[in-house]
């Protein structure tokens, strides 16, 4: 073991870590995809005040928002195999990636459902009345009128959550997933230069977050281009 801290090593580690960026992004995208659908399923009973289902959804959301994601990760990792055994499915030897995506889907669903609920509630009531007046059915009014407007309102919150979840994916290594952090751990075992690896990881995460932020700002502007500017008219 040479010097205690060698800045040159950071640059040597960067490409090795970057090779695993796709795994991190894959976890993020897969979790967001499932999370969004699940979020809609959770938000709908609460919006339409379906008895029992809406209370269950509220408890689910409160539980996920009330527990650390690291605990959720362990709960899914140990709990899901036990649960699926009831249906005679053996997943105890499944890829840990599967558990990570399951956890982040379940977790992001709770946060997104709250965002969706708030956004839908903030759409002007007159819009849905106008839709009914024009002869749209309840379903058409929701999908064609309310959802697009709610989506635009929810977008900034959604973007913040995505960035939060990107950072949370760094916990996946704790159940043995080979993402950037996991690759970092193997580099540390091989070279015993932990600090350089972690600094390299911090640089990569920071750059990815900056790129995402810039992208979201542009997307937001594009989404809101139909908004009429009363003040500047």
């Amino acid at each position: 073991m040479g010097k205690a801290f060698d800045p040159a090593l950071i640059f040597e580690f960067l490409p090795k870590l970057l090779a695993y960026l796709p795994v991190t992004l894959f976890i993020l995208v897969a979790a967001l995809f499932f999370g969004l659908w699940l979020a809609l399923l959770i938000a709908l009973p609460r919006l339409y005040k379906v008895p029992v289902l809406s209370q269950l959804a509220a408890i689910y959301v409160s539980f996920i928002r009330g527990t650390p994601v690291l605990i959720q990760l362990f709960l899914v990792f140990y709990g899901l195999p036990a649960f699926l055994q009831l249906f005679h499915l053996d997943v105890s030897r499944a890829n840990p990636l599967f558990f990570v995506i399951a956890t982040y889907s379940l977790s992001s669903a709770a946060f997104f459902s709250e965002t969706i609920r708030a956004a839908v509630n903030s759409v002007d009531r007159g819009q849905i009345e106008a839709a009914y007046a024009a002869g749209l059915t309840g379903r058409q009014a929701f999908v064609r009128i309310v959802l697009p407007q709610a989506g635009m309102i929810a977008f900034p919150n959604f973007a913040n959550s995505v960035i939060g979840f990107l950072k949370d994916t760094s916990l996946a290594f704790s159940i043995g997933v080979m993402d950037m952090m996991g690759r970092g751990q193997t580099l540390i075992s091989a070279t015993a230069h932990a600090l350089e690896v972690y600094i390299g990881l911090a640089i990569i995460y920071y750059l990815v977050v900056i790129v995402l932020e810039k992208g979201f700002v542009r997307a937001e502007r594009r989404l809101q281009r139909h908004e009429r500017k009363w003040a500047s008219a």
Partner: peptide, 10 residues
């Protein structure tokens, strides 16, 4: 912009 777990480790 960086995960908190990295702050702890660094």
């Amino acid at each position: 912009g960086t995960p908190v777990v990295l702050h702890v480790l660094i």
